[in-house]
Design a protein around this nucleic acid. Structure first.
Length: 494
RNA sequence: GGCGACGUAGGCAAGUGGUAAGCCAGAGGUUUGCAAAACCUCCAUCCACCGGUUCGAAUCCGGUCGUCGCCUCCA
């Protein structure tokens, strides 16, 4: 049996116990991107949050049908294509490829289905036909509008009252300002499909209803997306879907919070201050980006700034360093007996390891609280490091830290953080930071070997000169018994 | 104007009735050829403000102020 969990439901504004439609199974639909540009850090938060959530569900024993769509027909795409002179469908296809590139680089699991609007026209038209037949939609000059007044429950997800909305636009052909297009009549030069109402293309919201119902069923267990989609996008999805099926569209609505800028405002394309994922990945490891997102509760706003990724990477390095230390420990024997012999710090590692799984997963079970869950990881890491200071830890501590290493593996399995081997991680960090800081690994390593010789000669003056020079360039050296290792300073403290 | 969320140390961020997790930064110490890393100690008598409920509230209720999101495309 899968483990029970609780989750915040936007529809009720409370944390609720999750009840599946089918025992042991979760059908989850997440709104993906409108593909007319590169994936930015705000999108990435949604992607990483739901990626982590699905991993967690599966780790907890749920069978998950994870669907994330692409909106590849849309006003924005058509507008962008007109600017570049490109075919809109080709432009969308290009950005779908780019998204997959970014998704893979971020370590995202592939959804079970990634439906596209352009492949879902039949289902969309069937849904619109149903709404027209049921008198929830009306046709005007080749455009089909959803009639919000035909559905008294309209507004229940977002708490909006249809007559109290600001309605600046007066669009001809609509009966009510809040009515929205299900099917848009073709304009000259636009891509279009034949339909019972004439040539045209789907409106923005109908595709998600059609794809979600097509891939999962009339009722979804969970519908996810960014908080900015609650109104009107998700509200409209609810309206069209329920008007057609007469069944609840989604049992739980799960929304991730926005990335906010220093000013407090969200990161958004319209605000112009957007960092794209591709560039961030050139300078920082993918897992640092994941940890940055997963270090906060998914539905809180998350401040974005220059320090965000450097700090997250610093934390991640701390975790990997501890794992390296633990992996280097050897020895045999019964963990309890060895710990008894090695003292209080060893016993603490053992007790924290033993409690770890319950604590860590317990935090995730309560509204996917990754911030709290990660705090347990850092607590365990400190215990490992403290224990590692003991003289006998390296030769005899293996059995003591075995459980802690298993705990770190659990983090990787459940959240996709800490999933690399230590060496690969360190390589990735060095390569990316060297690139970001304009250094080459060859020159750094050459100077280090020069210094190593100086140290062997006990020429401390020369040794220190080299170290200071490297330090000025951002390279920090660490001398230990196995030799000198190095890393790049993460934050400019100057 | 309507709907909603939030305000916890220098920065970030958990905690939703029982006496403030964790990360970063800072100070002192252990360690080190010197460093770095790591570890130890310190760093919010207090959780925007004002009332109220309670044996007890950051946590519940009411009010005030402030910030943000949505109502137009948005993860």
């Amino acid at each position: 049996m899968p483990a029970p969990f609780r989750i915040y439901n936007t529809a009720s504004r409370t944390v609720e116990a999750f009840k599946p439609i089918t025992p042991g199974h979760v059908g989850i639909y997440v709104c993906g991107m409108t593909v007319y540009d590169r994936c930015h850090m705000g999108h990435a938060r949604a992607m990483v949050v739901f990626d982590g959530f699905v991993r967690y569900l599966r780790f907890r024993g749920w069978s998950v049908n994870f669907v994330r769509n692409f909106t590849d027909i849309d006003d924005k795409i058509i507008a962008r294509a007109a600017e570049t002179g490109e075919d809109p469908v080709a432009l969308a296809a290009r950005f779908i490829d780019a998204f997959h590139e970014d998704a893979e680089a971020l370590g995202l699991i592939r959804p079970d289905a990634e439906p596209k609007v352009s492949d879902s026209i039949d289902g969309i038209q069937a849904l619109i036909s149903g709404l027209v037949e049921k008198k929830h939609a009306y046709v005007n000059a080749g455009t089909v509008w959803f009639d919000v007044k035909s559905l008294p429950a309209y507004g229940k997800l977002s708490g909006q009252k249809v007559d109290e909305l600001q309605s600046p636009d007066v669009v001809p052909g609509k009966k009510h300002p809040a009515d929205f297009a299900l099917w848009k009549a073709v304009k000259p030069g636009e891509v279009s499909w034949e339909s019972p109402w004439g040539p045209g293309r789907p409106g923005w919201h109908i595709e998600c209803s059609a794809m979600a119902i097509g891939c999962i069923g009339d009722t979804l267990d969970i519908h996810g997306g960014g908080l900015d989609l609650v109104f009107p996008h998700h509200e409209n999805e609810v309206a069209q879907s329920e008007a057609h099926t007469h069944k609840p569209f989604a049992n739980y609505w799960m929304h991730n919070g926005m990335l906010t800028m220093a000013s407090g405002q969200k990161m958004g394309k319209s605000l112009g201050n957007v960092w794209n994922v591709q560039n961030a990945l050139k300078e920082f490891p993918a897992e640092a980006i994941r940890l940055y997102y997963l270090g906060a509760l998914y539905r809180s706003p998350l401040p974005w700034g220059e320090d965000a990724l450097p700090e997250a990477m610093g934390g991640l390095c701390r975790l990997y360093d501890a794992r390296e230390v633990a992996e280097a420990m050897s020895g045999k024997g019964n963990p309890t007996a060895v710990a008894q012999d090695l003292g209080e710090d060893a016993k603490r590692v053992l007790s924290l390891s033993a409690a770890f799984e319950d604590n860590f997963l317990g935090a995730l079970d309560e509204d996917f609280n990754t911030a709290k869950a990660m705090a347990y990881v850092f607590e365990l890491v400190r215990a490992i490091n403290r224990f590692s200071n003991h003289k006998k830890a390296k030769k005899r501590g293996g059995p003591v830290v075995a459980g802690a290493l298993a705990a770190l593996d659990l983090v990787s399995a459940a959240l996709g953080v800490l999933s690399m081997d230590v060496e690969s991680y360190q390589e990735e960090v060095k390569n990316k930071r060297c690139c970001a800081m304009g250094l080459t690994r060859e020159s750094v390593e050459e100077q280090i070997s020069e210094r190593t010789q100086a140290r062997a000669d006990k020429d401390w003056a020369k040794s220190d000169t080299i170290r200071d020079a490297l330090d000025a360039a951002g390279v920090v050296l660490m001398d230990c018994t196995e030799g000198t290792s190095w890393r790049l300073r993460i934050c400019d403290t100057q």
